[in-house]
Amino acid sequence: MITPIPKVKILIVEDEILLAQDISNRLTAIEYEVIGTAPTAIKALKLIAENPDVDIILIDIILKGNLDGIELAGLINAKYNIPFIFLTSHSDNQLIERAKGVYPYAYILKPFNDKQVSTAIELALLNFSKKTPEKELLKSRNFNAPDNQVLQIKDSIFLKKDHHFERVPFKDIYFLKADSNYCTVHAKSGRFMYSMVLKKIEAELPSNQFLRTHRSYVVNIDLVNGFEGNMLFLGEKKIPVSKAHRKDVFKLFHTI
């Protein structure tokens, strides 16, 4: 049975129905999961309450109803821990100053293309995962997203594949293997290769679940199903345990 690849979950808050549907279709086409669209702040709050695992929210600053997008963002900041991106065709100074006060994780001027919105989402996820929200609105639409970013949010890690991020739950990662200056993450949904040292990706993983067994390997100890000598078994895969790490590794396993 093939395990579905978890996708980044997005809520769109836009009062122009046709535009909201167009954004939804475009995001779906580039491998994001749109959990819903909301024309008002009240509807958006209802959808957030029903979908607490939403990863990011796209919010039009100008919304119909009693609350505009900036006021909605303030409520999200107060009650939830979810990053958001502002969408707007307005650029007047007073509006921008108000928007700065709620610390958006990115900002996109309409009209925008698929690459711009995808890159803004990646940038927002990066800022959120590092807990460093943008203190200034992004004034440029020419974003340059890093090619080798590892984003950790909630119980998952977002790994870049081709031109988008794939959500990989920690429980679905088998092990990491280093090869010189490259590191490969082996997971149920496939392999992800990065041009970075093993230690950097290891730092993004929960230490109570992932353990270094060798200078070239980090293993998900919850998925170890056996061991023999200096080898751990993960299904049919054998992972070496070096002398330097043997004591820390095998003290986790109780034998009778």
Rank of each mutant, 00 (worst) to 15 (best):
N220E: 12
G229I: 01
F250C: 09
R215L: 02
L223P: 00
V224Y: 01
I239H: 04
V219S: 10
Q209W: 01
S216F: 12
L232D: 00
E228I: 06
R212I: 08
M231C: 11
F227D: 01
S242M: 04
Y217N: 04
N220G: 12
E228M: 07
R246C: 08
H214M: 07
Q209A: 13
I221N: 05
G235R: 00
V218E: 14
D248Y: 03
K243I: 01
K238V: 01
G229E: 07
N230D: 15
S207A: 14
V249H: 08
S207P: 13
G235Q: 01
I239R: 05
N225S: 12
N208L: 04
R246V: 05
N230Q: 15
G229A: 07
P240D: 13
L232C: 04
G229L: 04
H214E: 09
F233A: 15
V224M: 02
G226K: 05
S242K: 02
G226F: 03
L232N: 02
K247M: 15
K243Q: 11
L211T: 08
L232A: 02
L232I: 04
K247C: 11
F210A: 04
F227L: 03
H214Y: 09
L223T: 00
E228V: 06
N208Y: 09
Y217R: 04
L211M: 11
F250H: 11
T213L: 05
Y217Q: 03
K238G: 00
N230C: 13
V218D: 10
D248Q: 14
L211Y: 01
R246D: 09
G235N: 00
R212S: 06
H245V: 06
R212P: 10
L205K: 14
S207R: 12
V219G: 09
E236H: 14
I221K: 10
T213R: 06
D248S: 13
R215S: 03
A244F: 14
M231F: 09
V219A: 14
Q209P: 00
G226E: 00
D248F: 07
V249P: 07
V249I: 11
S242D: 09
K238R: 06
A244G: 09
Q209D: 12
D248I: 06
H214S: 06
L211V: 09
V219M: 14
V218M: 10
V218R: 15
T213C: 06
I239P: 06
P240V: 09
T213N: 03
K237M: 13
V219F: 13
R215G: 00
Y217E: 01
S216D: 07
V224E: 00
K238P: 00
H245S: 12
G229R: 02
S242H: 02
R246Q: 15
S216E: 06
R212H: 08
N220L: 07
N208T: 08
D248V: 06
D248E: 15
G226I: 04
T213W: 08
V218K: 13
I239A: 03
K243F: 04
D222L: 07
F250L: 11
P206C: 08
H214N: 10
P240H: 14
N225V: 09
I221F: 10
I239F: 07
K243H: 10
D222H: 08
L234Q: 15
Q209M: 14
K237N: 11
F250M: 14
S207N: 14
S207Y: 08
V219W: 10
E228H: 10
V224A: 04
A244T: 15
K238M: 03
N225G: 14
K247P: 12
N230W: 09
D248M: 05
P206T: 05
D248C: 06
K243P: 00
K237S: 11
S242Y: 06
R246I: 05
